[in-house]
Amino acid sequence: MIFLDAFAWLFDAANWSGPKSIPARIGVHLLYCLGAVVGASAIAVPLGLYVGHTGRGGLLLVGGGNAVRALPTLGLVTFLYLVAGGGQVGVLIGLVVLAVPPILAGAYAGVQDVDRGVVDAARGMGMTGAQRLWRVELPNALPLLVGGVRNATLQVVATASVAAYVGIETLGRPLLDGLRVLDYGQFVGGAVLIALLAVLLDALLAIAGKFVVPKGLRLSAPPRRRSGPAEVLEVGGSTA
Rank of each mutant, 00 (worst) to 15 (best):
A8W: 02
L10C: 08
F11G: 04
F11R: 03
A14Y: 12
N15V: 05
P19F: 02
K20T: 09
I22G: 09
P23H: 10
P23A: 05
P23Y: 03
A24C: 01
A24Y: 03
A24D: 14
R25Y: 02
R25F: 06
G27F: 09
V28F: 09
V28Q: 10
V28E: 07
H29L: 09
L30N: 11
L30C: 14
Y32N: 05
C33E: 01
C33L: 15
C33A: 14
L34P: 06
L34N: 12
A36P: 07
A36H: 09
V37R: 09
V37P: 11
V37L: 13
V38A: 10
V38T: 08
V38W: 07
V38Q: 09
G39S: 11
G39V: 10
G39W: 06
S41D: 00
A42G: 14
I43T: 15
V45P: 11
L47P: 08
G48K: 03
L49S: 04
L49Q: 03
L49W: 15
Y50P: 00
Y50G: 00
Y50M: 00
V51K: 02
G52C: 02
T54M: 07
T54C: 10
G55C: 08
G55N: 06
R56W: 07
R56P: 01
G57K: 15
G57A: 03
G57V: 11
G57W: 13
G57H: 06
G57Q: 04
G58D: 11
V62I: 08
V62T: 14
G63D: 01
G65D: 11
G65R: 03
N66G: 12
N66F: 12
A67N: 09
V68K: 02
R69V: 14
A70Q: 08
L71T: 10
L71A: 06
P72N: 13
T73G: 05
L74K: 01
F79C: 13
F79M: 14
L80E: 08
Y81N: 07
Y81M: 03
Y81V: 12
L82T: 12
L82H: 05
V83P: 12
A84D: 01
G86P: 02
G86H: 10
Q88G: 09
V89G: 08
G90T: 01
G90S: 11
G90Q: 07
G90D: 00
V91A: 14
L92K: 00
L92C: 14
L92T: 15
G94R: 02
G94S: 13
L95P: 01
L95N: 06
V100H: 02
P101E: 00
P102E: 10
I103E: 04
I103T: 10
A107S: 07
A107M: 13
Y108C: 10
Y108G: 15
A109Q: 14
A109G: 06
G110S: 05
V111N: 03
D113T: 13
D113W: 04
D113M: 08
D113Y: 05
V114C: 14
